[in-house]
Amino acid sequence: MRLTLDNPRSVAAPFGDRFAHVARLDLAGGALLMLSGQVAVDDDGAVIAPGDITAQAERIFEIVGGLLAAHGAGFGDVLHIRSYLTDLAQLGGYAAVRRKVFTGRPPASTTVEVSRLFLPGAVLEVEVTAAR
Rank of each mutant, 00 (worst) to 15 (best):
V39M: 14
L3Q: 08
P120K: 08
S109Q: 14
V47Q: 06
A108Q: 10
P50E: 03
T103D: 00
R82I: 13
A95H: 11
E127R: 12
H71Q: 14
A70N: 04
R59N: 15
G104P: 14
G92A: 15
P106W: 05
F61I: 12
S83T: 15
A31N: 08
T103G: 00
T54N: 02
D17P: 00
A122W: 06
L5N: 03
F19G: 00
H21I: 01
P106D: 07
A95L: 12
L79N: 12
F75P: 02
D26V: 12
L124M: 01
D42L: 04
R98K: 11
V11Q: 01
A23N: 05
G65S: 13
A108N: 09
G93L: 06
Q56G: 15
A49Y: 05
A49W: 04
A96C: 07
T129Y: 04
V128K: 02
E127F: 03
I48V: 15
G45N: 08
L27N: 00
A131G: 01
V64K: 02
R9N: 09
L68N: 11
F61V: 13
L67P: 15
L119I: 10
A13W: 00
P14V: 05
R99I: 04
P50S: 06
F102Y: 08
T103K: 08
S10W: 00
V78C: 04
S83R: 07
G76W: 05
A73V: 15
L79D: 14
V112R: 08
V112I: 15
A73F: 06
A31S: 15
G74K: 03
F19Y: 12
D77W: 00
S10C: 09
T4N: 04
A130P: 12
I81L: 05
E113L: 03
R99C: 06
P14M: 02
P8A: 04
G72H: 10
R99D: 14
P50V: 05
Q56C: 13
L117W: 08
G30H: 09
G51Q: 06
G72C: 12
A108D: 11
G92E: 14
L25H: 10
I60G: 08
L88H: 06
A12S: 11
R82L: 12
R59F: 13
R116E: 14
L88P: 07
D42H: 05
R98Q: 11
T54D: 10
A55R: 15
G65D: 11
V126S: 02
L85D: 10
G93P: 09
V11G: 01
I48L: 13
I81F: 01
A69F: 05
A96Q: 12
K100T: 11
A73N: 12
L117Y: 10
G65N: 11
F75I: 00
